[in-house]
Design a binder for these strands. Structure first.
Lengths: 261, 261
DNA sequence: ACCATCTAGTCGTCTAGATGAGTTGCTGCC
DNA sequence: GGCAGCAACTCATCTAGACGACTAGATGGT
């Protein structure tokens, strides 16, 4: 067990950089250099207080900084740990290709099982609603919409929360209004109903999660979300579905292939 | 001027929710309801201390929470303000289409001026380097690469930092190795040199910024970054360029159009 | 009119404690 | 051996106060 001094060094009293930032710097360096690896426990607050000769609030400020940066997570009663990087799921831009729609399982399930993970879907809710202004504008201002909400989990960890909106006049009394819309999902049903899909628009934003999103996705502090809004258009140019997805950013890499036209 | 009580209400002493979280909840509600608008000053720490009857650290914890959520920013000596949402720049998936490459200006400059903003590019650096393992793998393991670094600003605000990597054997002694590669940028030069571009791969991640990125992009706390890695392939399937871009997430919406094949 | 200075108000940093609550492992009883 | 309970350690929350640094407006002199 190397001494704390050899791992963290000491503070520079002549520096005008705040002490808690210097402590965070030392810890960050140690993590970057591999002195602490993913999942390792960092020195306890008490140990850092004694090592650097500062008060506990100063040490806590330093640790809070690392958590905001997404480098560390604290666990009450246990310690502060280097944040483990969960395996990421790669979303290819052809994930809605027709050739992926023939199977009975959802794209999420197929991909997850192929990657050796245990997929789950919960919070399934299907209901009719008045659309928000934004959703209504994207769908051509329907009075009401069908909303399909669900949460996706990998190996028990929630990673994504999605809501699909469809104009109610289009979805009412169809399999799309059922909790399970059948093989190939709602896109297969839409095509069967004569809405041949032409293209999708996807808008991507990144931001910090709301408190509700932190609860739903069990997000550690320092983990942003990716907010993806996809609109599906049929061959007549009508927007037939808007899917609003919030993803834990540490669980995803989005991948797009663009032709160089 | 409405009283603080009418805007913020009081705490619930029977709740087991931490006091600083309750204070943050009250402030967040007030912001959501429009009682405080973008750019408005929140009550000072002293005012909140007196209103809620708690110590200053408790109030500061509450305000820190709002800043982590990206809802507020503090300004030393002035106060804590509801974070203004800067106008976002939308990046379309056809932004590298040939038809956009004819003009003398860069895509960034043209788009920014069209949107009425004042674009700048700085930190221009062009040099030869040994590639990192990741870049090397994407480019077919060249021994050395040409790296082109630049930072983009809109109306004086830095919004994006990008580095392009090209295999050195391909870029050496060409206009691409010049600070200004000429009209249409390096993609026009690559095509002139016989590398007809075929397609781009883009990988998108979101995460919290490193301290270096906070400095380079002047990021407020609670603002994540979007990390985009684009690889350009020529008609022979060779990777001719990798562009590594870090964007302030509050300044961008990425937009992709996907065919429903 | 201009500018330097003062001052009140603001957030930033740090100290030194107290109490509470979750986790873990040990100890001693059965 | 098994288990209940205790002790030690962890982070979470909160208090009360001190000093520093930055901002902006008021003051007053040139």
């Amino acid at each position: 067990m190397p001494s704390l001094t050899s791992v963290l060094g000491a503070l520079d009293p002549t520096s005008d950089r705040a002490v808690f930032r210097q402590i965070a710097d030392r810890l960050r360096e140690a993590i970057d250099k591999g002195r602490f690896k993913e999942g390792d426990k960092l020195p306890s607050e008490t140990e850092l207080v004694e090592h650097f000769g500062v008060s506990r609030m100063t040490v806590r400020n330093a640790l809070a900084l690392l958590q905001q940066e997404g480098l560390a997570v604290s666990e009450h009663g246990k310690g502060v740990f280097v944040r483990p990087r969960p395996p990421v799921r790669r979303l290819a831009s052809d994930r809605f290709a027709r050739r992926h729609r023939d199977q009975g399982k959802s794209a999420f399930t197929v991909e997850a099982e192929a990657a050796g993970s245990r997929p789950e879907v919960d919070s399934l809710e299907v209901k009719e609603e008045r659309p928000t202004q934004d959703i209504a504008a994207r769908l051509g201002s329907p009075r009401k919409v069908l909303a399909r909400r669900r949460r996706y989990l990998l190996d028990g960890r929630p990673v994504e929360f999605a809501t699909s909106y469809l104009p109610l006049d289009l979805a009412r009394d169809t399999p799309i209004a059922q909790p399970n819309p059948g093989p190939g999902g709602i896109y297969a049903r839409l095509e069967e109903m004569g809405h041949r899909l032409d293209h999708f628009d996807e808008e991507i934003r990144a931001r910090m999660p709301s408190p509700a999103e932190v609860r739903t996705l069990h997000l550690a502090s320092g983990v942003p979300v990716i907010h993806l809004i996809r609109t599906a258009f049929d061959a007549e140019g009508r927007a037939v579905e808007v899917c609003d997805t919030v993803m834990a950013a540490d669980a995803y890499v989005l991948s797009y292939q663009l032709p160089a036209t």
